[in-house]
Nucleic acid binder design. Structure first.
Lengths: 102, 102
DNA sequence: TCATAAGGCAACCAAATGGTTGCACATTGA
DNA sequence: TCAATGTGCAACCATTTGGTTGCCTTATGA
């Protein structure tokens, strides 16, 4: 999965709320997770599917329920991507600073 | 600006490439930035506008050119958001671990 | 056993997105 | 001065997105 895909998956208020809840560990079944999002169950299902496709989340059917679990490695990848850009930026500024001081 | 808006802005390959270049400090005018993205200048312009609207980037017209600059605080906000979710996750796991060990 | 709970899937729809072309306009430098 | 450069803006288009409703299937538990 690319960084852009993960960012895209996180780039929706409903999906981000879902991910936030999962990180909290408070909700973990489809039904549970679909409540109080302001949209229908089927609507929520589609958003969860987007997260599944981006590997931000994975599903595990247990009996008649389906467990939803966060895949932390995707968050880690996203964070690492941002950090690397921040590092690039800092290095550039330092290089500029050295040039000026010389 | 909300975290979801920033993630959404970063969630497109073309826009992410633009941000990457800016972090690098190698390109900084509209014209410069619009090259080699695989789309027209006007197409690139629209994507840059998305970044502007999300406050990921800001513009500064100089004569007939327009400088594009990264707003690092948006990246910082995005990174902080991810970090906070990772912390929540870790705390949850630790709480679970303590419960099992008790 | 059988009503209820959990969930999947498809069709449909309006709005947003990502791109295009065409044209106008101000700045610049020879 | 004037052609070239850098940029903006609007109209247009196909596809994607985010949501809906309707219906079907499978487990569960009283």
């Amino acid at each position: 999965m690319t960084a852009a895909q993960i960012f895209k998956a996180l780039g929706d208020p409903v999906r981000l709320e879902i991910v936030k809840r999962l990180a909290d560990g408070s909700a973990y079944t489809m039904n549970n997770l679909s409540k109080d999002l302001g949209i229908s169950r089927q609507g929520a299902r589609k958003q969860i599917q987007v997260l599944v496709s981006a590997n931000v989340v994975f599903l595990k059917p247990i009996g008649r329920e389906t467990l939803v679990t966060l895949d932390m490695s995707s968050l880690e990848l996203a964070r690492a991507f941002i950090t690397s850009m921040e590092n690039q930026w800092d290095q550039r500024l330092n290089a500029l600073k050295n040039f000026v001081e010389k």
